[in-house]
Design a protein around this nucleic acid. Sequence first.
DNA 1: TTAGTTGCAAAGGCTTTGCACGCGC
DNA 2: GCGCGTGCAAAGCCTTTGCAACTAA
Lengths: 136, 136
Amino acid sequence: MSDLLQRLRGRGWRMTSQRRVVAEVLDGDHVHLTADEVHALAVDRLPEISRATVYNTLGEMVSLGEVTELSTDGRAKRYDPNAHRPHQHLVCSGCGVIRDVHPAGDPLTDLPPDQRYGFTVSEAAITYRGLCPGCA
Amino acid sequence: MSDLLQRLRGRGWRMTSQRRVVAEVLDGDHVHLTADEVHALAVDRLPEISRATVYNTLGEMVSLGEVTELSTDGRAKRYDPNAHRPHQHLVCSGCGVIRDVHPAGDPLTDLPPDQRYGFTVSEAAITYRGLCPGCA
DNA sequence: TTAGTTGCAAAGGCTTTGCACGCGC
DNA sequence: GCGCGTGCAAAGCCTTTGCAACTAA
């Protein structure tokens, strides 16, 4: 918990109440939130915080490499605070909820050199799709 | 080539010049295009075609299951006409180009039952990211 | 004929930006 | 105090939709 906040502080990132609240909200929940959901939760703790600041802040966390941006099929982007723990995602086609999963093995090694077409491949992401218990 | 068009005709899909041109453009190019790129290429062949029709037509092809929608990085969606050939994608982080790859094995089987959290998992997509020869 | 398709323009969802004020360091 | 961060509102990008005219079967 608040692992993210500690990482950000450790990098000497200028801290404000808005940034702290965004980091806490992101890290404190077990599901991956959209920017608007982050804003809604942030408002509970800091009523004056603006949507623009939430968007800007999330964007900076992504630039710093401390948060990963997940874009699922035309819906709003979701933000994943576990940027340093290798994992994959399970997405519900119904409600869009995203949950982390940890299958065995490294997907990167599954792509043989003759399938790389000269690309310098640096990461591999697996997205499993289906319906969550609530939507099934 | 124009495999897609044949599949669509085979399903008894009502054919119009707009739909034919969209299918030809999508299938005729080896990269996966955005809706706007499809529109630009379609205009070359049929100057009056509207953006709305291109969007609607692509959406219907996706609903029919003949085209797959790819959402990369929160930018515009791209459309993949090879919906029936199992494959994965190699994405260039520099220019955004997407190329199909065919690694061995079925990624779906890599997710053990105890990692499914009650979800009914129906598909798995792997996205390999890196830099293409031109951007490296 | 007639249900389904098109084009236009306007609206919609999500996100970014310009600018003046405010605050962390 | 300085420079970056914030809030507001407006603009931006991509996409969808309402409606009247049109057309494939």
